[in-house]
Amino acid sequence: MANYSLLIDYDYCTGCHSCEIACQQEHGYPVGTNGIVVKEYEYEAGGRVRIDYLPFFTPHCDLCKDRRTREPTPACVKHCQSACMEFGLTKELAARMGDRNRLVLYTHNPGR
């Protein structure tokens, strides 16, 4: 069985909220329910204040199972304004993480 994942280059996540609303539109989720939630982090590094964002996934994320019968990518990946999300096979995405910086791989194996 193929295992799919989402790879997030969170150095480029700007917190624009597109992924969150894309998910709610795709699934018709009401307020309070979402497959993806973006969190803001504020910290100091190198004498500078940094604002970072990181999306995480809830059990409401089904990697857009139905959508992918007609579209190549989940709604969040497609609409990400920074294009910092990739969808693909876990093994392939993991193999590409090695020489890059500040990535998060979200694995999705329902049933385990």
Partner: peptide, 24 residues
């Protein structure tokens, strides 16, 4: 019933803002 970014349009190349995605 739904709205999505147009991947063939050079302006946004398929991307959309949250206000458009909430347009329904």
């Amino acid at each position: 019933v739904r709205i999505e970014g147009d991947e063939n349009h050079p302006w946004n190349q398929g991307r959309s803002c949250p206000r458009v995605l909430a347009l329904t």
